[in-house]
Amino acid sequence: MKMRHMKALAIKFIFTAVVLYSLLTIFEAASLTEILLISLLVTGIAYLIGDLVILRRFSNLVATIADFGLAFAAIWLFSSFFIYAASPIVTVSAFSAFFLAISEALFHIYMNEKVFEKEDDRRDDLTFTKSRLQAEFSEEEDIDYIRKKKKRPE
C-alpha cells in the first residue's frame, strides 16, 4: 500500500474516532477500546467502498451521501453489537453519520487533490478524454491556397 493511502487512512481514522468518541461517550456507556474498534471498522469499510470506489467514479456529493448511509449502517450495526445501548442507538448513529458526512466532504477534497492526483495524471498522459478534445476551426491564410481556390471552376 502506498504512503499516500496510509496517510489518508490515518487522517480518516482520527476524525472518525474523534466524532465517535464525542458522541458515543455522551449518549452511551462505551469504553475507549470499543470506540476505537468501531472507528477502525467504520474507517476501513468507508475508505474501501466510499473513497476508493464511489469517489473515483462519481462526484464528491454522491460519495458524501453514500458515506453518510454507509457510516449510519456501520455505526448502528457495530454499536448494537459491541455496546449495551441505554439510549436509542439509531439516534446516536444518525448524529454520528451526519458529522462524519460533513468531515467526509472535506476529506474527499483532500483525496482528489493529494491521493488521486498523481495516479490520474499518469493515466491522462497516455489517454485522451472526451473533455480534452476540441475541433479546430480556422481560415486558411496561405495566399497560394486562396488563389488556387478562386481559379477552380465549380
Rank of each mutant, 00 (worst) to 15 (best):
A135H: 12
T25Q: 09
V90H: 05
L77H: 06
A17K: 02
F58S: 07
L61H: 11
E117V: 10
Y110W: 08
T91H: 13
I54H: 04
L36R: 02
L77R: 07
I89W: 00
L23H: 01
A97G: 04
A66E: 05
F78T: 01
F15S: 06
V53L: 14
V115Q: 07
V62A: 14
A86W: 08
G44W: 05
K149S: 11
E141G: 12
S87V: 10
I26L: 15
P153A: 13
P153S: 14
I38D: 00
D121M: 12
D67P: 05
F82V: 00
A73K: 08
E136M: 15
N112G: 11
I54T: 04
L9F: 11
R152N: 13
F58Q: 10
M111Y: 09
A94C: 11
I54C: 02
R56D: 06
F95W: 14
V53P: 03
E140Y: 08
F58M: 10
A66T: 10
M6S: 12
M111Q: 07
R4K: 15
P88C: 09
L40F: 09
S31L: 02
V92M: 07
K148F: 06
I49F: 07
F72C: 04
K148M: 09
F78V: 03
L55E: 04
A94E: 05
Y145A: 11
L24V: 02
L100V: 03
A46Y: 01
R4L: 04
L52H: 06
A97C: 06
A135V: 14
S59P: 02
A46Q: 04
S138V: 07
P153L: 13
D120M: 13
I26C: 08
L48G: 15
L77F: 12
R122W: 09
V62K: 13
P153H: 12
F81Q: 08
Y84S: 12
S22A: 14
T91M: 13
R152Y: 08
E117Q: 13
V18Y: 03
D124Q: 13
E117R: 14
R122G: 05
S79F: 01
A74P: 01
F98W: 08
R4H: 08
L32F: 09
D121I: 12
A97K: 07
A66V: 11
I14W: 07
R123L: 15
D125H: 12
R147L: 14
L126I: 08
L126Q: 14
K151P: 00
S87N: 14
